[in-house]
Amino acid sequence: MYPTQAVFRPLTNRVLTGAGVRYARNLKPTSISTRNILTLKDHVYFSKATAEGPGRNGIVKSFGDSPLELKMAMPKAAGGKGDGQNPEQLFAMGYASCFLGALQLAAARANKKELAENAKVTANVFLGHPSEPDIDGFGLRVELTVEGCNNDEVIAAAHEFCPYSRALKHGAEVTVTKA
């Protein structure tokens, strides 16, 4: 099954609410809620990536210690050629790697380092249409599977510590500017 074609509209008619981005015309004054987001007092690492070309079928480059350049492509299941990587793959890779590091740190902090030494984390990232009819475009759903660590407290602590989990649970500060 192929998803319907995405409809893009300017951001000027949108309002950020606790449930995500919605069209202002669909909001009732009582439905706007606030959500605190996690902000940073400082940073210990900075990463930069640039995408160019025909959107999801262009090139993405990262800079820094170990530069990386990838050809991007819409997945076949979404109507593309599938001859490159896609943002969902990159998100899944980053989340799985980050969560594994958080899991190992949580186990070490609990003096149970051996619980996560051979652990493996799989992240499944799903791109799809939001079930709420007032939200246009696409959304993500993430499923994490932890293998090799059966301690629920360590897994929960990792979920609380992992920056990807925090961004999805608490929100992340995002600033969009024009160059």
Results as ranks from 00 to 15, higher is better:
176 V>S: 02
115 L>D: 09
116 A>L: 08
145 T>G: 01
120 K>I: 12
102 A>W: 05
18 G>F: 06
103 L>E: 09
91 F>W: 04
71 K>T: 14
65 D>E: 09
53 G>C: 04
96 A>D: 06
4 T>C: 06
107 A>G: 10
76 K>N: 11
91 F>Y: 12
168 L>G: 05
89 Q>K: 03
45 Y>H: 14
99 F>R: 05
100 L>M: 08
30 T>H: 12
34 T>K: 01
174 V>E: 05
37 I>Q: 10
159 H>C: 05
124 N>W: 08
28 K>N: 12
38 L>V: 09
149 C>K: 11
68 L>S: 13
122 T>L: 12
113 K>M: 07
93 M>A: 14
58 G>H: 03
149 C>G: 10
155 I>L: 12
62 S>H: 03
159 H>Y: 09
147 E>K: 04
88 E>A: 09
11 L>K: 01
21 V>S: 04
39 T>K: 08
58 G>D: 05
13 N>A: 15
144 L>T: 03
72 M>Y: 06
50 T>Q: 11
77 A>K: 08
47 S>F: 15
54 P>N: 13
177 T>Y: 09
127 L>R: 06
152 D>F: 00
46 F>N: 12
96 A>Q: 10
160 E>V: 04
121 V>T: 10
103 L>V: 12
126 F>Q: 08
146 V>T: 00
52 E>L: 06
86 N>W: 03
66 S>A: 14
124 N>I: 14
142 V>M: 08
123 A>Q: 06
123 A>G: 00
128 G>N: 05
2 Y>F: 10
174 V>G: 05
132 E>P: 04
28 K>F: 02
